[in-house]
Write a protein that binds this DNA or RNA. Sequence first.
DNA 1: ATTTTTATTTAGCTTTATCTAAATTAATTT
DNA 2: AAATTAATTTAGATAAAGCTAAATAAAAAT
Lengths: 220, 220
Amino acid sequence: MELTVAEENYLKAIYHLSDAGKKSVSTNDLAAEMKNKPASVSDMLRRLGEKEVIEYRKYYGLQITEAGKRLALQTIRKHRLWEVFLVEKLNFAWDEVHEVAEQLEHIHSPLLIQRLDAYLNFPKFDPHGDPIPDEFGDVRSRPRVELAEMEINQTGQIVAVKDSSAAFLRYLDKVGAYIGARIKILDKVEFDGSLEILVDQKKNLFMSKEVAGNILVLQS
Amino acid sequence: MELTVAEENYLKAIYHLSDAGKKSVSTNDLAAEMKNKPASVSDMLRRLGEKEVIEYRKYYGLQITEAGKRLALQTIRKHRLWEVFLVEKLNFAWDEVHEVAEQLEHIHSPLLIQRLDAYLNFPKFDPHGDPIPDEFGDVRSRPRVELAEMEINQTGQIVAVKDSSAAFLRYLDKVGAYIGARIKILDKVEFDGSLEILVDQKKNLFMSKEVAGNILVLQS
DNA sequence: ATTTTTATTTAGCTTTATCTAAATTAATTT
DNA sequence: AAATTAATTTAGATAAAGCTAAATAAAAAT
């Protein structure tokens, strides 16, 4: 019971939306995420239900099954391993990898992924700081908070970003807010939630609440 | 005017069959090659004709256009670069690469291929000895003859194989007839065309005409 | 020069994945 | 509780890529 590329993409989106706290993933949410019409989504949900990767009761909503979760995590694993490859081996910038990884994640070959993983030295996180599931789908996630939630004088290290769009990542590159950077909150403006932070003990950086809300920090 | 995956595969097959001397590629030949029915091939030829990658006059045959040749060579370039990657970097055996490369060749990203090429050090030949077209589609091919055509006492170096099936390649591995091996014809049996050859100045090897017909040699 | 055989194409069906428009169900408002 | 609005599903179309069966064209044989 193999999934098609479209099915894999839907399942991945369902997994991400479920994971992001959304109690019940709605047809409209999925349509927005997939940039398709709700009618098309309904149809796909029926098919995914038949393949038993989700449990679907029409008009009521859906839940991803254990089998579905396993498949979604496999796809996510492949996506993130390829992103590491592109950045570490082929010198892609972290804002250039997404679309290519989006294609590479659908290549079917257990051997390929096994070998790629070994070649990359079994990385645990991708270039955006997201954890790479192991071959059994287990994820080692780190406790992390949004930079926007931190208070004055707190310190930590940037470990991930929530938005992987090229525009956002290029902005972070420009201001030096890369993954691994050590940061300290110097000031926080009540009015708009904007922050002044110290990066790597040397650079002062002003940042809007929107930006800070998309940066995840491991507190120290 | 992008090609679909199926169209890319047909075009590649057309290119290979045209290249292999076949003056005019027939619907039946293509059907056999693609493991599809002739009726399906007819339909595809019509579409490829509309996209102007072949010139197609029904009942008369087809000819690949310049645009078609360029696209086919791009796909072949990608396939062969990925094969090099799999063997050199991921330690695939040369008989394990084909199916995976068959999938990887359809990933669209000029940057990816450019970087991969550089990462592999601009290889000129794939693991089976086939030349890798450059980004303009130019092929540096070497003059080469079938081992089966050589005469007693002639010498040369194995540079390619015509059959890339896992069974054949594993056999070659076993007998030590790898690409790059220096060989000399010690004896040739008139009756069945079988050969006795010396490999790398040390190993004597008996080989049927069928096998020798699938090994290509650069004479010296 | 017919006839027969072979090769090729057309017609019509299937599945996947999308769409639009219409219908239906659920949720919200009055 | 009825009416309105929003969300969702169904129905019917389309395009891609395959199939089978029937039709047609070209090639070979008598």
